[in-house]
């Protein structure tokens, strides 16, 4: 862990991240305590929410400890390089993945998968475009037939 950098913005130190997590877990606990099911008593005497609340409390305690322990000023190289746009990009990737799943299973796996693969490889820097397209088509087909071989039917009208 890199700890020597004095220019590290506070929010990227363990203490900064732990503070954010503490707030998050406080909100989570608040949400839990506002729920009726948490208080419902079961026939063995346990409340329905007992273990959930214990877990949430444990997470809260751990993040509070992180604000004060000996690693509080440390940070990680990964977090130093991370910008808000990266998180947005990650979220966008997830949306694309779900959209891919939705389309592939509702339209046709063999049409959508090569498009998804070619688009992603191109976006990640494969050039020229023809390489991205060719690799997308090949890989999409190979995966389709591999799964077919195992006995898993992927949705396609062609086969």
């Amino acid at each position: 862990m890199a700890s020597d950098n004095t220019k590290t913005p506070w929010v990227k130190t363990n203490r900064g991240v732990a503070t954010c997590m503490t707030i998050f877990f406080l909100v989570l606990l608040g949400y839990l305590f506002s729920q009726d099911w948490v208080y419902q008593t079961q026939r063995d005497g346990f409340r329905l929410g007992f273990f959930t609340v214990v877990a949430a409390l444990a997470m809260l305690i751990c993040s509070v400890v992180m604000i004060f322990d000996r690693f509080k000023d440390d940070t990680t190289p990964e977090i130093l390089g991370l910008r808000a746009k990266h998180w947005l990009r990650a979220l966008l990737v997830l949306v694309i993945c779900y959209a891919y799943f939705y389309l592939a299973w509702n339209i046709d796996f063999l049409i959508i998968s090569p498009i998804f693969l070619a688009f992603s490889t191109y976006m990640l820097g494969v050039r020229p475009v023809s390489s991205a397209i060719v690799s997308g088509v090949i890989v999409g087909c190979v995966i389709f037939f591999l799964f077919k071989l195992i006995g898993i039917e992927l949705p396609s009208m062609f086969f």
């Binding site: 997590m21 099911w37 419902q40 079961q42 026939r43 063995d44 346990f46 329905l48 929410g49 273990f51 959930t52 214990v54 877990a55 949430a56 444990a58 997470m59 751990c62 993040s63 400890v65 992180m66 322990d69 690693f71």
Partner: peptide, 27 residues
């Protein structure tokens, strides 16, 4: 503390679902 946080998160996710005694959904 990070290890324990991870463990607590596992416990939290583990409580999602049916209660083992009454089968009533929780969390």
């Amino acid at each position: 503390a990070k290890g324990m946080l991870s463990a607590a998160l596992g416990l939290f996710i583990g409580t999602v679902g049916a209660d083992p005694v009454s089968s009533i959904p929780r969390n």
